[in-house]
Design a protein around this nucleic acid. Structure first.
Lengths: 190, 190
DNA sequence: TGTACATCAGTGAACGCGCGTTCACTGATGTAC
DNA sequence: TGTACATCAGTGAACGCGCGTTCACTGATGTAC
């Protein structure tokens, strides 16, 4: 009765979501056509609508997936503040800046998510909440209230710093922004 | 010999640049078509190419204009840290969040500028330098080195905070992000 | 074991649409005489 | 003072193109007997 392994279509769908995530972060959501996205996944454009109701539907799924991946990173870090410090140094590195496709979805897509539909913004909101919680949990057991405020500050500053460093065409200035970003992040954590 | 006042065409050009700035910040650069931009300025699409070589050319001019306007705001503030504090409170207000068309070009366009051509990114880089200088100048006469680092941190955090607050579909969370953003900004200034 | 059939993930051409851009034209204006 | 002309900011229809989406079809697979 089942001609293909029952995981087959699911796996294809997941592959589309992941390759689309990479492409969206690199070229933008508006800048990535459905044909390109499918070609990235080794398929042709026509198959798209067997997996998603619309491009918007894909976008919402990609945002969910990207933020889940982002949250999952926290599980792989050293415990407590040390792990957070590692994350900051990696996040605000020239490698991250120069490879947006492999990096943080917030830095790459935040502006575009603002103009997306409810489903996508809801998906982003849920993911952002989880990230803030993860950061806050590492900043304290002592004072949860201030930890949460600092977590928001740390997150927003890291996102803004990475974006600014990517926009600057003067590499020296860009490097300075990244380096100062690390200093400022560590200072917020203190 | 001159059929129209010699400032006439210049004034029209400036009007296009300003109305386009508003539209870009509201709907995005990719999301704003040339016909819409011209209609905003009270003209029809055909006249566009009498003023600009291409849409890219307009974008570069808009970015220059927007950042110049942003820098000019600093001249209207109370002197020193007090003026900066006023700016922070205004910048991270629900009004700013809910009216991107009238607000900060960095928060609204940074992601898209990253994917623009050299001319636009150069225009942004020059403007960002001026803004960082303005902020740094207000943070100190005492220690210029650390003031510059703090200025970068303040700027990036404000941009990231405004973007995040706009993306969140949960208003309570969004309000929290803005309020904490003010706390965090004042803390960096200290 | 072999053959006819049902399933369905994926194909690829086609659709209407809005984009950035071009261009022949208009019509209000100031100049020439 | 009046008329023919040159200028040029702006008009609006048209262009090719790539977008998101649709759809009739293919062909590899497992099932039935």
């Amino acid at each position: 009765m089942v001609r293909y392994a029952k995981e087959h279509k699911q796996a294809t769908r997941q592959r589309i979501i992941e390759t689309a995530g990479h492409r969206f972060k690199q070229d933008g959501i508006d800048g990535s056509g459905v044909s390109t996205l499918m070609s990235d996944a080794g398929l042709t454009n026509g198959a798209f609508y067997a997996h998603f109701a619309s491009k918007d539907d894909l976008v919402a799924n990609v945002v969910t997936d990207q933020l889940r991946t982002q949250v999952a990173r926290y599980g792989t870090l050293r415990p407590g503040r040390q792990g957070l410090e590692d994350l900051v140094r990696d996040y605000l590195s020239p490698e991250q800046r120069d490879h947006p496709g492999d990096g943080c979805p917030s830095a790459a897509l935040l502006d575009e998510i603002i103009r997306c539909g409810d489903e996508t913004r809801q998906a982003y909101t849920d993911g952002a909440r989880d990230i803030v919680d993860e950061i806050a949990a590492r900043l304290t057991p002592a004072n949860p209230q201030s930890a949460r405020g600092k977590a928001i500050g740390l997150f927003t500053m890291m996102v803004g710093t990475l974006q600014l460093s990517r926009a600057l065409s003067d590499q020296k200035f860009s490097d300075e922004v990244l380096a100062q970003g690390i200093e400022n992040a560590l200072s917020i954590m203190r």
